[in-house]
């Protein structure tokens, strides 16, 4: 029987993207209304013409800065809150409703409310922070609670210093949970931050670009800005996870919790 040739593994995602771009192209041609659905080619050319302007890079840089700062603050704040709520059950009971509130409240409600309090320029940063905070908090808290008690007992018996316990047991145990938190928080915070920019339209922001292109029915520009958002999101997530997983594998911290006790 003749063997069917198989495609190399790396080509599959590329083929998948080509298929969907092809489908989009076909649909745009059949539809024939570029104002409603531009072709991929017109989106790409619009994107390249945007990229040739200085304001594009300023816009991207500022949006990126606002949201990345929000995510970093959430990583710090969420970790501190997790430490506090693990140490003190009073703090846990005090802050738990805030966690539930953050998770359940529609992001649009928070955006409009915060817009009244802190002004449009700071809203995206705050929204990225408030969206990522509960994810980091709950993941890190879970990681702290799941730290192997037997290893901690061993450390106590052998009189390990607080620094050694932190470096040799706490951080390696926590790392997989922290990584999972980053994975979820970055994508969500980025999307919510851009949504905040769309609704608040601060100067020099991707969201404002999306908002204005929608206002003036420049659909190809709307698609181009959306493409920018998708590409940056993928780049941040890829970069951050690459960095963290490199640290994890170098330090041999990738062991699953169930395998922890040898």
């Amino acid at each position: 029987m003749k063997k069917i040739p198989t495609l190399p593994r790396w080509s599959l995602p590329l083929l998948s993207i080509l298929f969907w771009v092809g489908a989009w192209w076909l649909l745009a041609v059949l539809f024939g209304k570029p104002l409603l659905l531009p072709t991929p080619w017109s989106v790409i050319t619009t994107l390249f013409s945007l990229m040739r302007t200085a304001s594009f890079w300023q816009t991207v840089g500022l949006s990126l800065m606002r949201i990345v700062v929000g995510i970093l603050l959430a990583l710090i704040g969420g970790t501190l809150l997790a430490l506090l709520t693990v140490k003190s059950s009073f703090a846990h009971h005090l802050f738990s409703p805030v966690l539930t509130l953050c998770k359940a409240t529609p992001v649009a409600s928070i955006i409009f409310l915060v817009l009244l309090w802190i002004g449009r320029d700071r809203v995206p940063l705050f929204i990225a922070f408030i969206m990522a905070l509960p994810i980091v908090w709950s993941n890190v808290r879970e990681g702290l609670l799941q730290t192997d008690k037997q290893l901690l007992e061993m450390a106590a018996l052998f009189g390990l210093s607080a620094k050694d316990k932190l470096l040799a047991i706490r951080i390696p145990s926590l790392f997989p949970y922290f990584l999972a938190a980053c994975r979820s928080a970055i994508a969500l915070a980025w999307k919510a931050g851009i949504a905040a920019e769309v609704l608040c339209a601060p100067k020099l922001s991707i969201g404002r670009g999306i908002y204005e292109s929608k206002q003036y029915l420049m659909t190809d520009e709307l698609f181009a800005w959306t493409l920018v958002v998708i590409l940056i999101s993928a780049a941040i997530e890829w970069g951050a996870l690459k960095l963290l997983t490199k640290v994890q594998s170098q330090k041999k911290w990738e062991v699953e919790p169930r395998d922890r006790v040898a």
Binding site: L151, M154, F158, K252, R260
Partner: peptide
């Protein structure tokens, strides 16, 4: 004052090699 113990389960740190598991204590 100084108590040492070998537990029923080895309780080794999976991310440290043998030498470092020993050095740790």
């Amino acid at each position: 004052r100084k108590i040492s113990m070998a537990f029923q389960e080895p309780r080794l740190l999976p991310w440290l090699n043998c030498e470092d598991n020993l050095k740790l204590v």
